[in-house]
């Protein structure tokens, strides 16, 4: 019981939640603009983690610098995928009709390729490295420096994204696209360019999260999947297309998961997360903060 009330769990929950929020915002962005569910989203985090790992292990480069390269790699990947695959999907009327179901499968294919490609190249041995793992004391709670930095950076990044949406032209265009695709075209927004940007940004956010997490988590080719699942739960919980909702829901899930596991045990983590998913989808599919969009009858 003491553990529950201590700050220890709360800090851990915030760290988890902030990473989840970062990943979820990226996923929500891609969904909001292109209406596609990126099932490979967590795998981008895996890519980011490997980038950080190899840069640190081979060249001794700090993960904070590796962050930039992780962004470059994932954004480049997004650009390639968009230009060669998704541009075609978005343009074809026939494909767009079944876009949602189809895109799921395409992303699944991408996920499979990323995971097994990484396994092939990097082997499935779990990797890890030590960086900034001094323990700091905040009140009664202990936390490693890398986790603390992750928490701060993730939150800063999410707020940066929100600011981006508020105060830049591209951000405004993105919001317009999320709101109404046809209307955006009418007012002259180059939606294909905005699709590309949102795709790249979404991927980059996930890669960033992965690079941050690599400092204190194990890295292996299949590490992305739990993040994908968590991201899905979060964007549904927060409302599809609602970016602030993802932030809030990310924190909520982080808290739920951490405290839930503390009460029941680590085996129940999956039951908890999927249980939340089912409950939200059945009781309130538009999410806690979503509008009255017709998703069910």
């Amino acid at each position: 019981m003491d553990v529950l009330l201590s700050g220890q769990l709360l800090i851990a929950a915030l760290v988890t939640g902030s990473i989840y929020a970062l990943v979820a915002v990226g996923l929500n962005l891609i969904y909001g603009t292109m209406r596609m569910l990126n099932v490979a989203h967590g795998d981008l985090a895996m890519i980011g983690a490997y980038v950080a790992f190899w840069l640190f292990t081979l060249y001794g480069i700090s993960p904070f610098i590796a962050l930039f390269l992780a962004v470059v790699v994932t954004a480049a990947l997004a650009a390639v995928l968009y230009l060669f695959i998704f541009k075609r999907v978005m343009r074809s009327v026939k494909l767009l009709d079944r876009a949602e179901a189809n895109s799921l499968l395409v992303f699944f294919g991408i996920s499979v390729i990323l995971q097994n490609g990484s396994a092939y190249v990097f082997t499935t041995n779990p990797r890890g490295f030590q960086y900034l793992d001094q323990v700091l004391q905040i009140g009664s709670a202990a936390i490693t420096a890398n986790r603390l930095v992750t928490l701060i950076l993730s939150l800063l990044l999410v707020f940066a994204v929100v600011a981006f949406f508020r105060f830049t032209m591209v951000g405004l265009a993105l919001r317009a696209l999320i709101q109404n695709r046809t209307a955006s075209q009418i007012v002259g927004i180059n939606i294909e360019r905005i699709f590309l940007y949102s795709f790249m940004l979404g991927f980059a956010l996930s890669g960033l999260a992965g690079a941050l997490v690599s400092m204190y988590e194990q890295i292996w080719p299949f590490m992305g999947f739990p993040y994908t699942i968590a991201a899905f739960v979060i964007i549904i919980l927060g409302g599809l297309g609602n970016l602030f909702g993802s932030l809030a829901a990310g924190m909520i899930l982080g808290v739920l998961e951490t405290f839930g596991i503390a009460i029941t045990g680590p085996n129940f983590r999956s039951i908890l997360i999927y249980g939340v998913l089912i409950l939200v989808l059945l009781l309130r599919p538009q999410g806690l903060f979503g509008g009255k969009r017709v998703v069910a009858r």
Binding site: S270, I278, L281, L282, P285
Partner: peptide
């Protein structure tokens, strides 16, 4: 489950299967 459409249904059925599994 059938009350929700499209991608929601996909995620939901996946969630149910995993839930039962665990």
């Amino acid at each position: 489950c059938l009350r929700v459409r499209g991608p929601y249904f996909v995620i939901l059925t996946f969630g149910v299967a995993e839930f039962v599994k665990f």
